[in-house]
């Protein structure tokens, strides 16, 4: 089946985007990414260690840019200015790579997005030629504004970052998908495989997760489960589910020829 995820003109086979944080070590990171089948991985940009450990293992060795599309993020940024600076550094770091994940947070307890700062940062980044995949709330009006600014994917939360609470408001996701032409990718809140399947069944273009995999008892096995759930949800969406109804007047087995019945 030719069903690609297309972001900013580039096509991907996998609709599962995976974060590279919180794993036990880089070997586990890589094993989980491989099991997930992901092609796009998020990375954070942080100050380098100025200490002595020159031979510290490096994410780029375990997760090579030749095999994965890097999506540098602005995790931990609370202002548009910090987010923009972080992504300018990311672009320099990654040889001019312009596909980025913008997230500007509103408060450190909930990690809920600050959409005002997010919109401001998106305007600057798009003007500077970045291809912005934007993490946002599930507000359909904000989502549409971010698309109008020129973001290449809208990535609403399904529930709070790291909460694993699943898809709390499928109706808002539907409102966003009804209004937005660019891919809508659920980012944050997925806790287990069924959550990913639900997101995909709703018609989302993809799902992005980190803690649901890294925080599982067996991250590599969960990564495999997420791969299947994302694919299953996508296929179910494309197949078109049967309508829900309280009663079914038509059993699955033939109604004729039941033994002991009276012939009419």
């Amino acid at each position: 089946m030719n069903d690609k995820l297309i972001i900013a003109g580039k096509s991907y086979n996998s609709r599962l985007l995976v974060g590279t944080g919180k794993y036990k070590d880089f070997a586990e990171t890589r094993a989980a990414l491989d099991a997930s089948g992901t092609e796009i991985v998020t990375v954070a940009i942080r100050r380098t260690n100025l200490g002595q450990n020159a031979n510290e293992p490096n994410l780029l060795d375990a997760v090579p840019m030749s095999k994965f599309t890097y999506l540098p993020n602005t995790a931990g940024c609370y202002t548009a200015d910090d987010a923009v600076r972080t992504l300018r550094l990311a672009r320099e770091l990654l040889d001019g790579h312009s596909l980025v994940k913008l997230e500007v947070l509103g408060d450190p307890q909930s990690l809920y997005p600050n959409v005002i700062e997010t919109i401001a940062a998106a305007k600057t980044l798009v003007a500077e030629g970045f291809q912005v995949m934007v993490y946002t709330s599930d507000d359909p009006i904000v989502a549409k504004q971010l698309e109008d600014i020129g973001c290449v994917a809208i990535m609403p939360l399904a529930s709070l970052i790291g909460s694993g609470m699943g898809i709390l408001n499928p109706w808002n996701l539907q409102l966003i998908m009804d209004r937005v032409q660019v891919p809508v990718i659920v980012d944050a809140g997925v806790g287990t495989a069924s959550d990913a399947a639900i997101a995909m069944e709703l018609g989302c273009a993809g799902v992005l997760m980190n803690t649901a995999i890294a925080g599982a008892q067996n991250p590599v096995l969960m990564a495999s489960a997420m791969k299947k759930a994302t694919e299953a949800g996508r296929e179910a969406y494309l197949a078109g589910r049967m309508p829900k109804k309280l009663y079914s007047a038509s059993p699955s087995s033939p109604t004729a020829g039941i033994i002991g019945s009276v012939r009419s």
């Binding site: 974060g19 954070a44 380098t48 995790a75 550094l89 990311a90 970052i161």
Partner: peptide
Amino acid sequence: IAPRSTFATQQLADGDKLEIVVAVGGG
């Protein structure tokens, strides 16, 4: 941003503020 290509020619001055970053695991 100080592009890598300018590292050899940019002289640091007293009071300069630098940020030096790398990519790390993150979600």
